[in-house]
């Protein structure tokens, strides 16, 4: 029971990731694949963010003068490092999504469909 309480968050993240992963490799619709990719990415971001969580801590914005004078208690503030990393990851995610959508439009121009099996059928002809 102790284990479940301590870890249930992680498990839900894993479930989320796997939903995204399945969409990426299992779905035939190209847009669905992309949505899956985004879900996968956000789930990883969630995992990272939760690595920075400390029980009973504040957001990582401090009072400059107070800190300069008195210093700061580490335990009271959320770990900012994962946030930084994940900002980057979010931006990377949107960049990939953008490029992928552009490629999607090109594919649609060429084949008139976004279903993988239909495209393959057209290629086979």
């Amino acid at each position: 029971m102790e284990l479940i309480v301590a870890k249930y968050n992680y498990w839900i993240y894993v479930v989320l990731m796997m939903i995204g992963f399945y969409a990426m490799i299992g779905k035939r619709n190209l847009v669905k694949k992309l949505i899956g990719m985004n879900i996968f990415q956000t789930a990883i971001i969630l995992l990272f963010i939760s690595a920075g969580v400390k029980h009973g801590s504040k957001i990582p914005i401090v009072d400059k003068y107070e800190v300069l004078e008195k210093g700061v208690d580490v335990a009271t503030i959320v770990n900012p490092l994962p946030h930084v990393l994940m900002l980057t990851a979010i931006v990377v995610g949107i960049a990939v999504t953008g490029v992928a959508l552009a490629i999607l439009l090109r594919i649609y121009r060429e084949y008139g469909t976004l279903e993988e099996d239909e495209i393959l059928e057209k290629l086979g002809k």
């Binding site: 990582p60 914005i61 401090v62 400059k64 800190v67 900012p80 930084v84 900002l87």
Partner: peptide
């Protein structure tokens, strides 16, 4: 003061 901005 925004630690995220500082690190970022």
């Amino acid at each position: 003061p925004n630690l995220v901005t500082a690190v970022l």
